[in-house]
Design a protein around this nucleic acid. Structure first.
Lengths: 201, 201
DNA sequence: GTCTATACCTAGATAGAC
DNA sequence: GTCTATCTAGGTATAGAC
């Protein structure tokens, strides 16, 4: 019994934890938070329910980790597009398009992140990330206003409205497995988002 | 023991049920769905937990009734304003203003209706009512487009965006008890809603 | 019809064998 | 470290006295 963990042990543990998070994410994407019990997640990862507690102190802690990972990826992608160069209104359009496309391509996970019923800890995380999305939108709107490309407005309110609008427009398609015309939806959403910010085009 | 209930008995029963619904609504507005256990609700109504089942077959049934009553009131008020006469864009603005004011005046309940974590049955009801709000908005937008007052657009998408935008803009103020500048918020929200629909003004 | 007391179920968390 | 088996808590729903 080593006094401290060997590098190999550490790596193996981290890999196990990683595997657990990935499997849990898949379960959540498929059945939602409410049905993603510790047992279900452990089964998916091929370990015993009790072993989950080797990696996370509680079910909530695992759920929060799952949420953060996935939401962070989307925030990164959105930020990348919104903070690029060129016309702010154009960046806004592309940001909305990219966000919507990714959500539609991965409905289960997107629905879980945006709207699915979840325990309080995940709900709090969701609020936090919505604030981050909002901040990203607010920044590009402020730029557009400063550049005279968008009319004067309260960027915080517009950004919140954008966040809510995108979520709501996506939720119905996301919550059904039936086919929907993605192109039409994405174009319509981008249009309404631009109008929201007052882009003339 | 009467063969069938006397009118007085019926009235008393309905009053008791009514009282239960009202008290449950207050509890939900104060502590949210998750904390509104049968015990808590019964305590608030001044009856025993078991007696709740004299009026509702399950906790879910009671929760759904509470949600429906409150959401219906808002839908009625919103419909009243949106379906009045005069300029469609003007009606849209007033509808948003009225909805937002009422929500801000009654944050607890509004937050419960719009966003608070809830059991699946209530979640389903929430989706249903959002579709109704959306339909109300879509109707006035279609009118505005037909009258040439609003630019051509997919009214369903715009209506969904409005529903989401209003909810999101209100959620943050609603979830905090701290003071916020209601007038500024309402004006900003009305502005973004009009832009959303493409109203030039 | 309403109360008290309790049965029961679900799901998270833990203990101890291996 | 991981599994099996179990404990526990919280909350819905029910049974039986009054």
């Amino acid at each position: 019994m080593a006094y401290r963990k060997t590098p190999a042990e550490i790596r193996r543990l981290e890999a196990a934890r990683e595997h657990l998070v990935v499997c849990a994410t898949e379960v959540v994407a498929e059945v939602g938070w409410a049905q993603a019990s510790v047992t279900a997640v452990a089964d998916a990862a091929g370990i015993a329910a009790g072993s989950v507690y080797q990696h996370f102190s509680s079910k909530s802690a695992l759920a929060v980790e799952v949420f953060r990972r996935a939401a962070q990826r989307e925030a990164d992608v959105l930020g990348e597009v919104l903070q690029g160069g060129g016309d702010p209104a154009d960046r806004l359009r592309r940001g909305v398009e990219v966000f919507a496309r990714r959500a539609l391509e991965n409905h289960g996970l997107a629905y879980a992140l945006l709207a699915a019923p979840a325990e309080p800890a995940v709900g709090a995380e969701r609020l936090a990330f919505r604030r981050r999305y909002r901040a990203l939108f607010a920044a590009v709107i402020d730029e557009g206003v400063a550049a005279g490309r968008l009319p004067g407005q309260d960027a915080e309110i517009t950004a919140a409205a954008l966040t809510g609008a995108i979520g709501e427009v996506l939720v119905y398609p996301l919550s059904t497995s039936g086919p929907h015309d993605a192109d039409r939806l994405v174009a319509g959403l981008a249009g309404v988002a631009l109008r929201c910010a007052g882009a003339s085009d």
